[in-house]
Amino acid sequence: MLTLKRAKIIEIRSERPGYIEVLVDVDGNRHKAICYSALVGDVRQGDDVIVNTTAVDLDLGTGGYHFILCNLSKDSVTSAGDGHIMKLRYTPLQIKCLAAEEENSPYHKTLKDVTSIESMPVIVGTLHSQLPAAAVMVKELLPTAKIAYIMTDGAALPLAFSRLVAELKSAGSIDVTITAGHAFGGDMEAINIFSALAAAKYAAQADVAIVSMGPGIVGSNTRLGFTGMEQGQVINAVNGLKGVPVAIPRISFADKRERHVGISHHTITALTIAAVSRSILTIPEMDRGKANTVNDQIVKERLDQTHTVVQISAGAVISVLKSKNILPTTMGRTLDQDPEFFMAAGAAGIYAANVLLGGK
């Protein structure tokens, strides 16, 4: 069940394309709320709105935000565009999109018969916070490389929710965004991960793609119940399209949860169960104790037999991110608090750049 309440907007806090953050009065109490203009249209101070309070009521990890469902101060909202592909299908908020592959798209003829992405390197992550290190390191080694970020529908669905993507695009660290499945709001829309990869290669003319979900991975403390399982499925898609999948391992020595220490069980499960084809698994060089822990896991889980494990010198990743003032966090931890996490993502970017440069 969802919880809906009437509210009044008392302050506009910030805006970026597709995203408006406001302060609302709900039953005499002030709360943060988010409006996606693609779904609701614009809102202004004084508007009466309906907000979805479900996640905050359950104390879930949404940052304490309500979400505006509709604006009672407007008689109607009309979505612009010529698309005929529906996302959020058969829900009250279904939205029409112009998918890159549909007949009305200028890319339809280009994508119509595509079955290969011709050895394009594709970096495959699980957490949204892996995106910046991977992208920045590709650009650090190959500034002319064109990077497409493909956001899946494994977590947040509106791309506009990601402040990180806005910052990376502004900095030139990613060049084009593609939202796949029910995710929406990218520079290009795609129906599924296969067509998103094709769009990255031939419509966006990207040199490398980075695939990961948006903010807010879903987990359950079970072996299979987490949306990061999609990493294995994306690897299969990349191989099916004759690309080069480069898997980012989720590595941490700062996480207090045993299942995420060293190589996270998320990576192990995705690569041993969901992935039924090989990937390049890039492991950053670390100090001896941490490296031994990771290597023991690789051997125990036979990752070196089912995937190609490559050690990468990634010690510069943290300093490069800092030099560009790109300061991501993961689960609230900074670059200095969880360096191996970001080094692992950067290592995948280094490998992909070297593929483009003709080496490995």
Rank of each mutant, 00 (worst) to 15 (best):
residue 295 N to P: 08
residue 214 G to I: 06
residue 242 K to N: 15
residue 223 R to D: 06
residue 221 N to W: 02
residue 205 Q to M: 09
residue 219 G to Q: 04
residue 305 Q to D: 12
residue 261 V to S: 11
residue 292 N to K: 13
residue 209 A to C: 05
residue 260 H to L: 08
residue 277 S to H: 04
residue 213 M to Q: 15
residue 276 V to N: 05
residue 282 T to M: 00
residue 271 L to Y: 06
residue 303 L to C: 05
residue 214 G to T: 08
residue 268 I to C: 00
residue 287 D to I: 04
residue 243 G to E: 00
residue 258 E to C: 08
residue 255 D to K: 03
residue 269 T to F: 08
residue 278 R to N: 04
residue 279 S to A: 15
residue 307 H to Q: 09
residue 200 A to T: 02
residue 236 N to V: 00
residue 284 P to M: 05
residue 291 A to R: 12
residue 189 E to H: 10
residue 278 R to K: 11
residue 206 A to C: 07
residue 301 E to M: 09
residue 272 T to D: 07
residue 271 L to R: 07
residue 281 L to A: 06
residue 229 M to D: 01
residue 297 Q to G: 06
residue 189 E to V: 01
residue 276 V to D: 06
residue 247 A to R: 00
residue 279 S to V: 02
residue 266 H to L: 13
residue 263 I to W: 13
residue 299 V to L: 14
residue 231 Q to G: 06
residue 256 K to R: 15
residue 229 M to H: 02
residue 237 A to F: 01
residue 243 G to I: 00
residue 254 A to S: 14
residue 275 A to L: 07
residue 227 T to E: 05
residue 306 T to P: 10
residue 248 I to E: 10
residue 299 V to Q: 13
residue 186 G to A: 01
residue 232 G to S: 05
residue 247 A to P: 02
residue 204 A to D: 11
residue 191 I to G: 00
residue 210 I to N: 03
residue 209 A to I: 03
residue 288 R to C: 12
residue 199 A to M: 06
residue 251 I to W: 10
residue 225 G to P: 03
residue 302 R to T: 14
residue 295 N to S: 12
residue 232 G to P: 08
residue 275 A to N: 10
residue 198 A to W: 04
residue 282 T to W: 00
residue 264 S to M: 12
residue 197 L to E: 00
residue 187 D to C: 02
residue 265 H to K: 06
residue 209 A to L: 05
residue 196 A to Q: 02
residue 195 S to K: 02
residue 298 I to Y: 03
residue 259 R to F: 02
residue 275 A to M: 06
residue 205 Q to P: 03
residue 204 A to R: 09
residue 269 T to E: 13
residue 286 M to D: 01
residue 290 K to V: 11
residue 308 T to Q: 15
residue 292 N to F: 09
residue 204 A to L: 09
residue 307 H to Y: 07
residue 275 A to H: 06
residue 283 I to C: 05
residue 231 Q to S: 08
residue 294 V to S: 10
residue 275 A to S: 15
residue 296 D to I: 07
residue 219 G to R: 04
residue 273 I to A: 14
residue 240 G to E: 01
residue 248 I to L: 10
